[in-house]
Design a binder for these strands. Sequence first.
DNA 1: GGCTCTCTTTGATCTGGATCAAGTTATGTT
DNA 2: AACATAACTTGATCCAGATCAAAGAGAGCC
Lengths: 243, 243
Amino acid sequence: MTMPVLEGVTCNECPIRHRAVCARCDDDELGKLEGMKTYRSYKAGDVILWRGEPLEFVASLVYGVASLSKTLEDGRTQMVGLLLPSDFIGRPGRTEIEFDVTATSDVTLCCFDRAPFEALVNDTPHVAQRLMELALDELDAARDWMLLLGRKTAQEKIATFIDMLVRRSHSEPSEVPGAIPLPMTRDQIANYLGLTLETVSRQFSALKKRGVIDFTDRHHFQIIDNEGLRLATGDDSDPALAG
Amino acid sequence: MTMPVLEGVTCNECPIRHRAVCARCDDDELGKLEGMKTYRSYKAGDVILWRGEPLEFVASLVYGVASLSKTLEDGRTQMVGLLLPSDFIGRPGRTEIEFDVTATSDVTLCCFDRAPFEALVNDTPHVAQRLMELALDELDAARDWMLLLGRKTAQEKIATFIDMLVRRSHSEPSEVPGAIPLPMTRDQIANYLGLTLETVSRQFSALKKRGVIDFTDRHHFQIIDNEGLRLATGDDSDPALAG
DNA sequence: GGCTCTCTTTGATCTGGATCAAGTTATGTT
DNA sequence: AACATAACTTGATCCAGATCAAAGAGAGCC
């Protein structure tokens, strides 16, 4: 996997310019952010932030995938969020976080030191508003996931996960056409869906056998039957909505 | 249960004055809210808002308990939030909601028409900031609940639920001393915890048999063994933290 | 090319919580 | 007080997904 080099890239050339925390900024506001930003990179598997550790910086995720996870005393873990490009790490007024943040693939962040960023938020309504929107989007996503974790079957969980990946990964242009990247191991997917890795593997096999998806390799798949996938999520009763 | 009459009550006498969306307001700002507010009451079981319906008003919950829930096509439902006094319904920039809001007990809301409220938010930073804090608190709660739904056992779910009730219900002074109200049916608790009502009932019985809690009646209980309760939640490994 | 290590698949078995099925206790209502 | 209805408890059985186990399949390295 190639890791784009971003040092020296201007905000106007940034791939997440219109979806990240800076989405609503005008040129003037963007200039201030431009002067504050630094890029950081992490290898797949690196821990970006530990739960409870003081938060030195906030950041937008530019490339890659990161995960938020919580762990019980005996080691059971549950992912409580997946960060894709344009997602934000850190919250106004919070000096620490309640979960670990880990690089799932190689990751590049656009970072701002926390104190000056907060000062900027306070007198830049465009940034404050965008932060609120991002927080509310995360809250909606968290609630969809609560329904999934509490009430969906293993098959429905896997179908919903694939459906979410298709919707959210505005797939990189350079990739094999039609092949959607699966940027996580079976174990990480299991931790996201509240399952075991064996069950994840079995349900992928079942969807493949049913002709809903197909794997080009273990980390790239294609949708064969979009309608079948949608039905398998358990969300829509009305087939007309999926057409 | 007595339902306090609130018509004519001033904001300064309001029981949620210092925790609700108005928490940071000065007297001037409070005056504006005072002029906009109206009270609405609902009976236990009433639907306050349907998913997808245009949002006419936003509100703070003053008395009672309400729930947010999502439903799959075949009727399986999952509660995705519990609203207690001072919690807020409605979000800046959102004209509809993604879940049903239902009165769990008799409920009183302090309502504001949506459009004028949003106008006020835009030029009252104290309100905008407080709304952000409330949203982030909900996000933290949602993530704790994802860990519960995805990884905890039935016993741990029940213990965590009780522990949350104890922490959050600043129990009404008029109640029987030491008796904590359980403001939901077994079925509603099951929908909150991703269980069935039979499992909820069995786990309450098990905690009672183990001497952790005791019931004065079916909707009021007491904590007998606080340490035992904390251990049963599965959260803390370190007993020193619970002391 | 062969070796090692990690990830993945598949099979066999077990079990926690769901489901099915009575009874029991409250809370009204007339 | 008798009745009706809704909420709750408890028991018996079942099954989806966990757990235990072992065998493939990549990917990196010398």
